[in-house]
Design a protein around this nucleic acid. Structure first.
Lengths: 252, 252
DNA sequence: TGTATAAGGTTGTCTATACAGCTATAGAGA
DNA sequence: TCTCTATAGCTGTATAGACAACCTTATACA
């Protein structure tokens, strides 16, 4: 039996969700198998049925479970979706082209989160975050400006690195498991600072890729990559998972 | 006062959600303004507070509302962005924001493939292809320029449609199975024609999403979507497939 | 005038209970 | 043996009440 300890630090339904997710991730409950019913949760954890219902309902909305009235609650098969945007290390991409990667740090330190950054991190303004700004060059030409904030709780040693031999992306991928990703891609005109750092001609737009990463329901890092339009595009080619032409479920 | 009639055909919280959404879409409650508090809903609709809470909570999870403890519940600004990972119909995305979609055809006909287009279609220059150029508008404002070539062998009826009730994207998704996809995302300055069609101020860049679709090793369609930078972004959020860091029941 | 306190409204969570609709199964009856 | 029925368990929904945390505003006090 796993721990039945429910603390007061977090809401009960959150602790229930994490407990169930842990047992799914450990494959104790494999895809397709039944999980605890609401009444079983009520008995085993001494919570009310509404609280058990909330935990199971939210996990269902998040895609982990499927519920069938009159039958039970089951672990869902994780969706296999091809990713347009994999996390790829700029140093590796440049090396794969047979070119030379170099980088320099424009800023590195501990900062107070602005209201906008705090909202991205789902925390309060003034929270302390690691911050780094780097320029990545391909054969000496700037191709990427990296403006990254990192949650100190998730990567406490982040500031101790000099990022000469390893990029922040590579370090984080190797050291922090990622549960969820959010990407936003935009076009924009660079600010004067960005224009200077990237050595962009006046009038040339930039592509920005903004990424947030979660681990254990906590934002680990938020990063904005800025690429001069003429020097970089985002590309992907893949086979959609459901390419057997079944009309399928989605009617969005 | 709007209708207070709550029937028994649907769950109460669903009717409450639709009622609130309708008042948001009618601009009675504009973005940023406050909606009814839970207690006000309890009074006006004679439901319990838990039911009112469920309606507001789910609308918040769906991104329509934002809740601030101790203050109230507010209408959120709908994000202007399209899905990156899936092929989604712009008409549906606009409708999901509660806005009005319209479109007009700038060109439709049979054309000879230029060398560049022929290469995209893995065929010879001079091949005959269907071509369509459309402007999609959200509440009257141009948000997407669609410049699409279609293989007549894959969709022979394509030119017979007027694309008033269905977009080319929706038609092709429904009628041609897709085996493989290629995406390229770039930032660029619009050409004078594009600038005019999209009604973009001078100096504003655009985001372009170029997509090729294959079916049975044959290019079905190649399309270039152009979005004014200030009016649209591309977005995705998902859980990576390999997110099983089975640390289990620890308490990081 | 300025500051501390109290009050009231708001969301967030949790409990206990109830009823309805659905499903699988065991048991009764033909 | 087969069929129908009752039952138990499951999810879905809804109610009423309660306490906590938070924010704003008004009030009392120094």
């Amino acid at each position: 039996m796993t721990s039945l300890v429910l603390t007061q630090a977090q809401p009960l339904y959150v602790q229930l969700k994490e407990h169930i997710l842990a047992r799914i991730r450990s494959r104790e409950w494999a895809p397709g198998s039944r999980v605890l019913s609401e009444n079983e949760i009520v008995e085993q954890f001494s919570v009310s049925r509404m609280t058990a219902n909330r935990a199971l309902k939210e996990l269902t909305q998040e895609g982990f479970l499927a519920r069938v009235p009159g039958v039970g609650t089951f672990v869902k098969e994780p969706p296999q979706r091809a990713s347009l945007l994999e996390i790829r290390n700029i140093a590796d991409e440049i090396a794969a082209r047979g070119h030379f990667h170099s980088s320099e740090i424009a800023h590195k330190g501990l900062v107070d989160a602005s209201p906008a950054i705090a909202e991205e991190f789902e925390t309060n303004a003034g929270a302390r975050l690691f911050h780094i700004t780097m320029v990545h060059r391909e054969n000496g030409v700037p191709v990427q400006l990296e403006d990254r904030y990192v949650n100190p709780l998730a990567a406490p040693d982040f500031l101790n690195l000099d990022f000469a031999g390893i990029t922040p992306t590579a370090y984080l991928v190797a050291n922090v498991p990622v549960d969820e990703l959010e990407h936003t891609v935009e076009a924009m005109m660079p600010s004067p600072q960005e224009q200077a750092l990237l050595d962009v001609p006046a009038g040339e737009p930039c592509l920005t890729l903004h990424r947030r990463s979660w681990s254990r329901d906590r934002v680990v890092t938020a990063v904005r990559f800025t690429y001069p339009a003429s020097r970089h595009a985002l590309y992907s080619r893949y086979r959609p998972s459901g390419s057997n032409h079944s009309m399928e479920s989605d009617q969005t």
